[in-house]
């Protein structure tokens, strides 16, 4: 069984597999949705998602991109 770590996703605490990156997180929680991701108050360009592995206690904001007004 793989090691699990605690992170915070949109303010809610949850457990994910250690070593999970932002792209995998998006696929697990918002697959097929067009979202942006902020990791510890920095919005990460999509191109960097696969390079950013989650660490214990990371704060992640995942939000839908919209264009209305």
């Amino acid at each position: 069984m793989s090691e699990m770590i605690d992170i915070y996703l949109n303010g809610d605490r949850l457990q994910v597999a250690a070593g999970m990156d932002l792209q995998q997180l998006q696929q697990q929680f918002a697959d097929g949705q067009h979202v942006a991701i902020a990791l510890n108050t920095e919005i990460m360009p999509r191109r960097l998602w696969a390079d950013r592995s989650l660490q214990a206690r990371d704060q992640v904001l995942m939000f839908n991109l919209v264009a209305g007004g």
């Binding site: 949109n10 303010g11 902020a38 108050t41 360009p45 999509r46 904001l61």
Partner: peptide
């Protein structure tokens, strides 16, 4: 920067917008 609304928590979170070097 971007200020993101979180309806569930009724609050805004401010985050720095990082540049995509290949944008």
């Amino acid at each position: 920067f971007v200020q993101i609304y979180q309806h569930h928590h009724q609050q805004f979170s401010q985050c720095q917008l990082l540049a995509d070097p290949q944008c």
